[in-house]
Design a protein around this nucleic acid. Structure first.
Lengths: 140, 140
DNA sequence: TCTAAAAACAGGAATGGTTACTGATCACCA
DNA sequence: TGGTGATCAGTAACCATTCCTGTTTTTAGA
């Protein structure tokens, strides 16, 4: 995703691409994994010590709203953010907190079953998966 | 589930069935839906005004540990507790917070796919579903 | 280019769900 | 009955996140 695309998406919802929002995106790119808001904040702060944590939260929320980034939430753990906005499945290690992707799992059929079996209008569904990562399994 | 069974399950993990834990179970039974810890606390307090919220949290955690109750967590919302410990799917209304069950959805195949596609040892997986309940849809 | 209005920001206080701590109370077994 | 550990009430602390206020930056119009 190029900067002009992102600026365009923000414009579309009445937002601007500020240096802080760009810094948050760059931090997300640099982190490469699934950083929390605090992780992003620490990276951004290295180059721009004056940014506030609240600004990072607000930037993440705006960027998610316009569809440039995605977020995932596990219980007892801060929300993780991700440049990958395609539907995909992530697993989180209950010991070290590392998050990684689980490829090759199709949720389409399940989502259809859900829609067919509830009178609710479904707005969001996601699979939350936890386990022990290979590194933590070694230490067992 | 009868009281002797519950006492036995608690015993098995070195716990006792205290009056507070019993009151929490009764509140859960009376609430009938998917109450939060605070909901349970308010119900328990009606008959036993001296119980502390912390006690309710601790009782819920013990009861969950021994497998007598289950819990579900949605982002931006307190954890909900449930006497139904069988795997099942719940949907939460993003407007009023009401939680209800979605019957007839099978996650077994998906869980198998997950296990086959990750090097993690999966310890827990659940589907988190949100939407608008029929009552809130009416008010749209 | 200048200026007023709107948006975004920094810094810090506040919030809400949950856990941790402390001294008092209770349950069980010898 | 007394001792030992579990449990409890009450309260303080915690942590992720949001909210608030005054200031800075950006934008749009003249």
């Amino acid at each position: 995703m190029f900067v002009p695309d992102i600026r365009e998406k923000l414009r579309g919802s009445g937002y601007t691409l500020t240096s802080q929002r760009r810094a948050v995106l760059e931090a997300l790119l640099r982190a490469k994994g699934h950083p929390s808001a605090e992780d992003v904040y620490l990276i951004v702060k290295r180059e721009n010590p004056r940014v506030a944590l609240g600004t990072v939260y607000q930037a993440l929320s705006v960027l998610e709203e316009v569809g440039v980034i995605g977020s995932k939430h596990w219980a007892e753990s801060p929300t993780r953010y991700d440049l990958n906005v395609e539907p995909h499945l992530d697993i989180r290690c209950i010991r070290c907190g590392e998050v990684s992707e689980v490829p090759g799992v199709a949720l389409g059929a399940v989502e259809e079953q859900i829609r067919d079996n509830t009178p609710y209008r479904v707005t969001h569904s996601a699979m939350v998966v936890e386990g022990l990562c290979p590194a933590c399994l070694d230490g067992e």
